[in-house]
């Protein structure tokens, strides 16, 4: 056994037990007969057939669609914020960006119920409007925009952090050089800042997309279960329905779809090429 291998052993064991084993267990379970609770059953594709014949694709589309909309909105919201943070706070911007993660110390459900209190009829927003102007507006709670608002709110730090990192890695000299060579503010942005911060943008988008596809609480709490994302289907299969193999099959399919999308994006935008290392 080489010293290098021996030294890596703790990490290897940790990854095998904590990362590979659960994945293998879930994948294995997806081939077990429906409504069984054992790894020992005869392997079958029946769960996958059930999914294909069901209307699960609607939930898949909702999850992917909501995640995509969230990522696009976040990209447009977080980039100017990250840009401002980096330009104003300079080398301290990473610290300030870290402050944006403080809400993560509070449970997501509690934060979302905060939004419910804010948005609900006679709540913080509408109640204030009513008492000030006597106008009774319709609440946006339990609608699609409310879900998207919640998702954008919850995943903002995960987009902001890689983006500020990406923008802070643009060397000031290259900006100065571009200006010196005659570029206007907009040209500096388009020709230098945007392409050089692209790795941060891309990593932020991938991270938030993967997280947002797994979102479940927003649709439940803010959407009032009007929209059922695939994660909700998976949860139901594992809990109320007591059909673990079906839930496992759904989870495997979701992983495959998301994995394929991520690989596709990474192939299209090679990070090394973007960083000019190749």
């Amino acid at each position: 056994m080489s010293p290098g291998f021996r030294a890596s052993l703790p990490v290897v064991i940790f990854l095998l037990a904590g990362f590979a084993a659960p994945l293998i267990a879930v994948t294995w379970f997806s081939f077990m007969p429906a409504r069984t609770f054992s790894f020992a059953g005869a392997a079958t594709l029946e769960n996958y057939r059930t999914i294909v014949e069901s209307t699960s694709y609607i939930s898949f589309l909702w999850s992917l669609g909501l995640a995509a909309v969230t990522v696009v909105l976040l990209a447009f919201i977080a980039y100017p914020v990250a840009y401002g943070l980096v330009r104003v706070f300079g080398k301290w911007s990473m610290l300030v960006t870290l402050l944006f993660t403080i809400p993560l110390f509070v449970s997501e459900n509690i934060r979302l119920y905060g939004w419910v209190l804010f948005l609900i009829k006679n709540g913080v927003l509408l109640g204030t409007i009513k008492s000030l102007f006597g106008v009774q507006a319709e609440s946006m709670l339990f609608t699609l925009p409310a879900i998207i608002l919640g998702m954008v709110y919850v995943y903002l730090p995960f987009m902001l952090f890689p983006m500020s990192l990406g923008i802070s890695m643009v060397p000031q000299d290259t900006r100065d050089a571009a200006v010196d060579l005659g570029a206007s503010r907009w040209q500096v942005f388009r020709e230098v800042e945007l392409p050089l911060s692209m790795p941060g943008i891309l990593i932020g988008c991938l991270l938030t997309f993967v997280l947002a596809v797994g979102a479940i609480a927003e649709a439940k709490v803010l959407g009032g279960q009007q929209i059922i994302p695939i994660t909700h289907d998976i949860e139901i299969a594992f809990t109320y329905a007591q059909n673990w193999p079906l839930g496992a099959a759904l989870a495997v399919l979701l992983m495959l779809v998301v994995g394929a999308l991520v690989l596709l994006v990474l192939r299209r935008f090679d990070l090394d090429v973007l960083l000019g290392r190749r």
């Binding site: 000299d173 290259t174 100065d176 050089a177 571009a178 005659g182 020709e191 000019g276």
Partner: peptide, 28 residues
């Protein structure tokens, strides 16, 4: 700086790392 008929070669050179030699030279 962008309106002055002068130009600077930086200590760090400040080349655009995401561009080719040709694109760098053609930038102005």
């Amino acid at each position: 700086a962008n309106k002055r008929p002068t130009c600077m070669v930086f200590q760090s050179l400040a080349l655009f790392p995401h561009r080719t030699v040709g694109q760098n030279i053609e930038f102005p």
